[in-house]
Design a protein around this nucleic acid. Sequence first.
DNA 1: TATTGTCACGCAAACGGTTGCGGGAACGAT
DNA 2: ATCGTTCCCGCAACCGTTTGCGTGACAATA
Lengths: 340, 340
Amino acid sequence: MKKELVTLKKIAQILDLSTSTVSRALNDHPDISEATTKKVKQLAQSMNYVPNIFAKGFRKHRSNIIGVIVPNITHYFTTTMLRGILEEAAVKGYRVIISESNNDVLKQTEMLNTMMQFGVDGILASLTKMTRDIDNILPILNKVPLILFDKVSNKIPCTQITINDEEAAYNAIEHLINIGKKRIAIIKEREFSYTSEKRFSGYLKALKDHDIEIDEKIIISVDDISLIQGKRMANHLLSIKKRPDAIFAITDSAAIGVIQTLKKFNINIPEDIAVVGFSNSSHSTIIEPKLTTVDQPGEKIGKNAVKYLIEEIESTTDILTNKMIEIKGNLIIRDSTFKV
Amino acid sequence: MKKELVTLKKIAQILDLSTSTVSRALNDHPDISEATTKKVKQLAQSMNYVPNIFAKGFRKHRSNIIGVIVPNITHYFTTTMLRGILEEAAVKGYRVIISESNNDVLKQTEMLNTMMQFGVDGILASLTKMTRDIDNILPILNKVPLILFDKVSNKIPCTQITINDEEAAYNAIEHLINIGKKRIAIIKEREFSYTSEKRFSGYLKALKDHDIEIDEKIIISVDDISLIQGKRMANHLLSIKKRPDAIFAITDSAAIGVIQTLKKFNINIPEDIAVVGFSNSSHSTIIEPKLTTVDQPGEKIGKNAVKYLIEEIESTTDILTNKMIEIKGNLIIRDSTFKV
DNA sequence: TATTGTCACGCAAACGGTTGCGGGAACGAT
DNA sequence: ATCGTTCCCGCAACCGTTTGCGTGACAATA
């Protein structure tokens, strides 16, 4: 396991130069002559020199590592964002360390702290659902750049990247209206969730714009938006006297639960009740009928998050940036709302 | 962004001790009296001291980072392994940096090298399909501990962790035989793949043990095992004169493709043709009929991989370990083979 | 010739923590 | 009184790289 390290000193000795000259040559410092620079670089190359990352970080207080925290790494959409993050970080010369909070607020703040201690240059976080107390997160802000993505919170003064939930939801509802639906239910989250609220307001706005009555009886809020809850709420919606003719679940998994119970009761989709979800998860083309949903360009979100984070990291100014970036999601129309 | 660092020196000054004493106190060195140790630890705690990771790594040549390389981060099974890896690494005090090779051999070796340069303490790798030339990987072995998981290769002399593919496949086939199937097709990979071969040999052994004729016409090999290939091969299997009465796809996605085309041709599952997959992906309960498949305990694999890796990292001896660890997978019987 | 400027490079300190070695104090044994 | 031990602790070197400052050589300018 012992390895003869190739260091600046060694190169300097061979070339009869000082380590500082070698260092500067490798970093293209203008003080060093072209000839020397070339000579040094060639030897370094041939000796397979790699700078000692610790010594470097030690001196420069830079790790070239960014930390990423996500609630649940097994969600398909999350992995697409991670893919974007990894790719963009790689081209920018950053490494990525990932942690999973399991939607546990305590774990989340613990991870934030661990990452800070560890010396990451910046943090990308997708918050847990119930992140109500911001007090644990605020201290981070003036120690290391932080950017929120996907699951964000407007209470935290930092730049945030999401998809245009409101507009996307608006489009989804408008689509339902266009195919003739007049009584559209929504299944959303009860606990305050930034994205849920955004999608809900898109829903409301679309109904208003089209002069459709808003009925609270078909506005369903659940604690955790999941497949099982989708099934339960579909059961509930079927039991009320004036049944909806369309259901918008703000999550694909809930939408799939809805579809499964509608099928159990032999309800025609989309003729009797149309269903639309949100995420374009990989499940949405496996379920039958295939699910109409909003595609979220995860890779794009990930890439953008990294781009803005590195911008902050490498910026010399110390001001807290506070941009809101929205990435456009696209409605994908499939069999659950439209039969050819 | 500037932050007053709390260093050993500062603590030493306050307590009128030397930095070495403080350092030793914090590391429970026996040379330091209990009283001093306690005093130092208390102050360090109250001052919120965190050791500078770079200085530490610089001295000790230890980063407490392990690198993980996977072919595709968006596969559900992969994420479950990652979850196990992250969890186990966290409790052991290690950070994890993740890279995605996208099944690109060049990228894979590049990543291995990058990670090494970066100073990871060890590497966990799940290989790309076509990793034929081991030459790029072998040099890694005597520089940093390497462990393969899931997608392994017996050509590389290092410890490897998989599920017991052969036995699991054997059980799956035996199950098909037990429900009365006598002509069982398999869809496997053409390119040499360790897991595919293992599953195939489990298939062969089960057939032999039950005196069932092996017919090469229903042993299908494909380049890339995918949903689309599943569809194609199902079409092919339906076209031959002696149709199979069961299809074992060595991958859930292929199995789902099979189910979709069988349904298209109104073939009863499982009465006419039963289907079993492998992975217990999240799709397997969305598809209808629900898919019988082998559950792979991803978290367990991940945790074990980390455990063995850290063992190697922290071992003083330099011998290359070369264990083969098999984690047991469980057959999960669902509607695609068994109707209640 | 004297002064100033530029170029190309070396010296040495600094980053924060670890560790081999050495040394003083206290104490018991001789 | 001397010696040997043991217990605690400090000194200083060291890890590899970066960087402010200094310097000698040489050319340009006055």
